[in-house]
Nucleic acid binder design. Structure first.
Lengths: 275, 275
DNA sequence: GGAGCGCTGTATCGTATGTTACGTATTTTG
DNA sequence: CAAAATACGTAACATACGATACAGCGCTCC
């Protein structure tokens, strides 16, 4: 079973003529970066001519150079997706069903936060804490609970936080209350829901700032979003995992709380008093 | 100090017009692979036009697209050289607000699963998959979304799954439908809610099997619970974190799904047909 | 409400890049 | 050692790609 181009090369390097073998060795030496550059650069690095490079990739079974490059990119992408899982995945001695799931989830979180800068989160937190206007939250079929979770917390520390629930017609009518001072937090992962997209579009047209929690493939709502948080959702299960997004949400809640500390503390004390 | 293009983007994304921001977000979402492809592919993925992509890279300070790609490649190459050094999101030497939160959450999960045996999870999953009776789910003030999340998934793969929502009187009356063939999944973390405890007790008296998701200090409901899942909730924030419980819930959902594979698959197909 | 500015997409252009044809060099084989 | 076959590079070609000019549109600010 040959699963990488490197193996493919190792397999066939014996049958190659001198020039192509040099190409192969050069590629292996700095795998796979050289293969992502142009034919000219590749050939220069290998000290052979361009056609030799092309004959080399042809011998590997590729129709043309672009096809070869695409393969390399896919391979790289797969590696980058789960660096830890690939490199240091302990075969889970117990072999239980739990470990792979947990490992994947942990990796998803690390990966999600790797693509998420402190600054970006801080920006969103600031925007949510500003409270120039109202804050609306809504989610899709499986992500609506995340919207609820976030709304439940935000509503404690600031006024004018609304979770949009129930029938589509219900929250669609709330559009009339929304303006450019307001923020709309949307959770939407595959399969993306048309109704949400339409809603986001309308809100966007009204000048509402949209904060989108989505997966790495980006919901079409990203079109209209001021801020996009792309979480990893792939796990060895029949379902996608929203855990990474959940953690981002909690982080955001924490950040907003910190920014509102002064106001929030007073508000919480007041609330305690009401019980 | 800006050492990676990702940081550069995070730094300037605030000053970008909508189109370029979309480009930035798409790049970050699947960083850096999209940036290695052609302008046309990049623009298609971002849903903008080619010139917008070029203006985007220009704004980042690159003379042309090739220079931009070369930078990305160099970055990638460096990363591949030493996988240990993660250039993307540096360990936050500033002590940013993100890292401690994430670290604590990850640690919570590991710790939670350390005290949770495969067998225990498997038992619960089996019980939930048996479907001799009905499944009810309910949560507290901040954990109700977790109950909803779990209910939303379970309801897809099996019948008779009910999330108890709304006013206390509403779900209290549902007690009459519950018997010893049924399962009640309760989420309850500090501060434990009296109403939930009373509800759990009554359900227990009726012979309902209770699966409890709680924190490490154990809700008083643990008295009545057949299965107790204790998750770590402490994080450096004003709030407790339900992330660990969330992940356990997802794991459980996955396990139940696997057990119901045959039935579930048919059911899901049937559901698709109904749309 | 009107004028100005900035953003964005369409269409066009030039060029860098992959590709191929062909001639020369090198190796192989009888 | 001769002749054929294979390998390799030079050079010309075609195409796909990045770059740019321009016009339309929406937005902001007066």
């Amino acid at each position: 079973m040959i699963s990488s181009i490197a193996e493919l090369i190792a397999d066939r390097i014996g049958t190659m003529p001198a020039g192509e073998r040099r190409a192969a060795q050069t590629l292996i030496a700095s795998y796979p970066m050289i293969g992502l550059k142009t034919v000219a650069e590749f050939s220069a690095a290998a000290g052979v001519s361009s056609p030799t490079i092309l004959r080399f990739v042809a011998r590997l079974g590729f129709q043309n150079y672009s096809e070869f490059q695409s393969s390399l990119q896919d391979e790289l992408a797969a590696q980058l997706q789960s660096p830890a899982i690939r490199t240091l995945n302990p075969p889970s001695p117990n072999g239980g069903t739990v470990s792979p799931m947990l490992e994947a989830t942990l990796e998803n979180m690390r990966e999600t936060f790797r693509h998420l800068s402190d600054k970006q989160l801080a920006d969103i937190a600031t925007r949510l804490a500003e409270r120039r206007g109202k804050t609306f939250l809504i989610g899709g079929r499986f992500t609506d609970p995340l919207a609820r979770y976030m709304a439940a917390h935000l509503a404690v520390i600031q006024p004018d936080v609304f979770h949009l629930a129930g029938q589509e017609s219900m929250w669609r009518d709330r559009l009339i209350d929304m303006g450019k001072r307001d923020v709309l937090v949307i959770f939407d992962i595959r399969r993306y829901q048309d109704s949400l997209v339409r809603f986001a579009e309308k809100a966007h047209q009204r000048g509402v700032q949209i904060v989108l929690f989505t997966d790495q493939w980006l919901s079409p709502i990203a079109r209209f979003a001021r801020h996009v948080i792309a979480g990893r959702t792939a796990v060895p299960s029949a379902w996608d995992s929203s855990a990474a997004l959940f953690v981002v949400a909690e982080t955001l809640i924490g950040a907003v709380t910190r920014q509102l500390e002064a106001d929030g503390a007073r508000r919480i004390r007041e609330m305690e008093g009401l019980r």
